[in-house]
Design a binder for these strands. Sequence first.
DNA 1: TTGTACGCGTTATCAT
DNA 2: ATGATAACGCGTACAA
Lengths: 345, 345
Amino acid sequence: MADLLSVAKLAGVSRATAARAFSTPDLVRDTTREKIFHAAQQLAFRPNKVAQQLRLQTTQMIGVMVPSLDNPVFAEQLQAMEVAARACGYSLIVTTSEYDASRENEIVEEMLRQRVDGLVLTVAEADKSAVLTQLHQETTPCLLVYNPPGNSGFPSVGVDNHAASEAATRYLITLGHQQIGMVAGPLLQSDRARQRYEGYCLAMQAAGLAPSPLIEMPRHTQADLKSLAPHLHGDNALSALICTNDLLAISLIGELQRAGLSVPNDLSVMGFDGIALGKYVYPSLCTVEQPRADIGRAAIHTMLNMIQGERPVLTPLPYVLRKGESVGALTTRKTPPGISSRSVA
Amino acid sequence: MADLLSVAKLAGVSRATAARAFSTPDLVRDTTREKIFHAAQQLAFRPNKVAQQLRLQTTQMIGVMVPSLDNPVFAEQLQAMEVAARACGYSLIVTTSEYDASRENEIVEEMLRQRVDGLVLTVAEADKSAVLTQLHQETTPCLLVYNPPGNSGFPSVGVDNHAASEAATRYLITLGHQQIGMVAGPLLQSDRARQRYEGYCLAMQAAGLAPSPLIEMPRHTQADLKSLAPHLHGDNALSALICTNDLLAISLIGELQRAGLSVPNDLSVMGFDGIALGKYVYPSLCTVEQPRADIGRAAIHTMLNMIQGERPVLTPLPYVLRKGESVGALTTRKTPPGISSRSVA
DNA sequence: TTGTACGCGTTATCAT
DNA sequence: ATGATAACGCGTACAA
């Protein structure tokens, strides 16, 4: 591919003049600039960003790491980040960690070698992340997304999971529910999920209710009725559930309906995240909506500020309690049909 | 950040030797190599990829452009691409075009300046894409994803939309449906959507049935009952629908249920794409599943071959007709309740 | 206004 | 086995 030197030669000027025609056009006479542009066009010249990056010691690239793109939460956030970054002249290097610590390490190392101007990461657990502690040695600015700003020492953009979860729980209590459970993926995998459980417990206790132990699903984004069935009958049968993410909630609602139960008549189900699709399913998903696009944009703009050397000042973004058909007021009801241990076996 | 020269000095060797210690370790004596590694560690040396890229004239980066990440089809494909690329030592620069032609241009130009080793694109319409015709002038290999391999002149990985749509239609016909309609976003926006409509028409005609005109929704991924209501009663009331994508289908099913209709009893609804969530909603989505992960992986591996200079040989990937609860056999029924033009107004 | 010359951090060729 | 040196393509301080 043609380089500046060949353009300069064709235009009959020195390489420096050709370079100036592009970087500082007003420093070169109109006529010669035209000559240069013309030559560039003829040779299909295209500035080499790699050389620019080396010379200017900045890549205008931001390294992004999310756990997975199979979860629309991250995909929707990334979508907003990409648009925002591009609007500011930045490109995104996108990687997925799959919640794997060793992968997280490799990815960050790779990005640092690539000399990205900044890192925007979502890690499994910010407080006990080897990557993050190691990153403190580096000068490359780093920003977390979704991870609660605990003692990781890095700024973070996201909502207050604690408060959001409390609000969700209180909402269900307001509707008369007393037997409320929380459903999560395996092992309370992420720090967000843990905070959400804590918020739930606090809200329950504040209302004089007993929090139930966490109900763990075998998979992070797919519900399984078997794990749930024991909690749906008997004296302490739950009348409402909060799921730690929307995919879990939607698939749970599907499973319940498939088992002949009605949501919300037999059981109210609430989600967490606010993915777009939740508005369109039936029953529509009642959920705590995180402003995913706002989060993505805020992450980019904050990161750009950090790159400029500013110290970020971050206040949690506002969550929205999105009402939906999957949650209803508590109604007295008999033991629901079709949910005996036999029918779900 | 420390560079090779400072490492060399600290280790008491020349820059060349230091470089060799990393690139060709066996060409340097064990003891000196140790010295060099030690020095590198002390200085927290980290190879500069930008310099390598300039020197080696290869970035090990692939430029990826998808229409949007808000649609799980692309997100799920990208997820697979990222994993596959990373496994081969490549990074991904990810961009979203939002189906905007001018954005497509800017993005591709930007990526070429970045000297990506290859481009993997999904454009709105491969046949009439300004970007693609211009790309023929370039030497950077380019591969399409999802776009049918028409006369764009570029290889493409994806399923045979035509055949897949025919198969879907035939499936409905097999179940006894005769009044089958197809629902799409506005303007038959993408070449895929058009092919799917053509496939539907062909299958209908082959069965001696009359294809219905396309039913257009105001938005690409969100259904609207008003546009549909006219087709649901009267002599030619439809008994089955095929949507051009899964999001449309899922939201349509939601709307129908909300209007008091039963899917599939009153109306069978079929999707297209096979996003993961479709399996978990109720009724589960009957759809034509594109192997999104396979497509993503195949795209990367094909691209790597193209970068090696090989000419790609591409056969369409197999689609799978995923059965689901949203489609049932035709049953005689009266005009469904609650769908009069009044009730949806 | 334009040209000369250096450096960004590597790899690779040629000597030694 | 190691060292000196020339690229890779560009931006810019300095000189003219």
